[in-house]
C-alpha cells in the first residue's frame, strides 16, 4: 500500500484528498502545518508528498520543500506542489518539486493521474 503525506492547512481540502486517495487504495496521512509535516516525516517515510504553499503556522511550503531536499533520507521522495499560487512555478521547480499544479486548474482526474505517475503505479 503506497503511503502518501498531505501537508495542507485547509480542513476541507484535507477531507477531499483523503476521500479521493483512500478510494484509490492509498494510505493517507495529513499534516496541517509545515512543522507537523516535518515531524510526520521524522516518524515515517512516505512514497509521495502533496504539499501546499500558503501554509499557516510560520513555515510556508517552500521552506518545507527546502528542508526535505536538504535531508539525505527524504530528498528522493517526490513532492508534488499543489497550490493556487500560479506565479511561483519557477521557484517551485528550482527547489526541486517533482510537479507544480494549480489546484483550481487541475481536475481530480488529472490529479489522480499525476499522483499515480509519480508513484509508478
Amino acid at each position: 500500500m503506497k503511503k502518501i503525506l498531505i501537508i495542507e492547512d485547509s480542513v476541507e481540502l484535507q477531507e477531499s484528498y483523503k476521500k479521493l486517495l483512500t478510494a484509490e487504495g492509498m494510505d493517507v496521512s495529513v499534516a496541517g502545518t509545515g512543522q507537523q509535516g516535518l515531524d510526520a516525516l521524522e516518524a515515517q517515510k512516505p512514497d509521495l508528498i502533496l504539499l501546499d504553499i500558503m501554509l499557516t503556522g510560520g513555515m510556508n511550503g517552500f521552506d518545507v520543500l527546502e528542508r526535505i531536499k536538504q535531508n539525505d533520507r527524504l530528498k528522493e521522495i517526490p513532492v508534488i506542489v499543489l497550490t493556487n499560487l500560479d506565479t511561483e512555478r519557477e521557484s517551485g521547480k528550482k527547489i526541486g518539486a517533482a510537479d507544480y499544479l494549480v489546484k483550481a486548474n487541475t481536475s481530480i482526474d488529472e490529479l489522480l493521474k499525476i499522483v499515480k505517475e509519480h508513484l509508478g503505479v
Binding site: L20, S107, I108
Partner: peptide, 12 residues
C-alpha cells in the same frame, strides 16, 4: 490565490 482557493475547492 485567494480567488482560486474557494473556486478550486468547490470544483473538486
Amino acid at each position: 490565490h485567494q480567488l482560486r482557493t474557494p473556486i478550486g475547492s468547490i470544483k473538486w
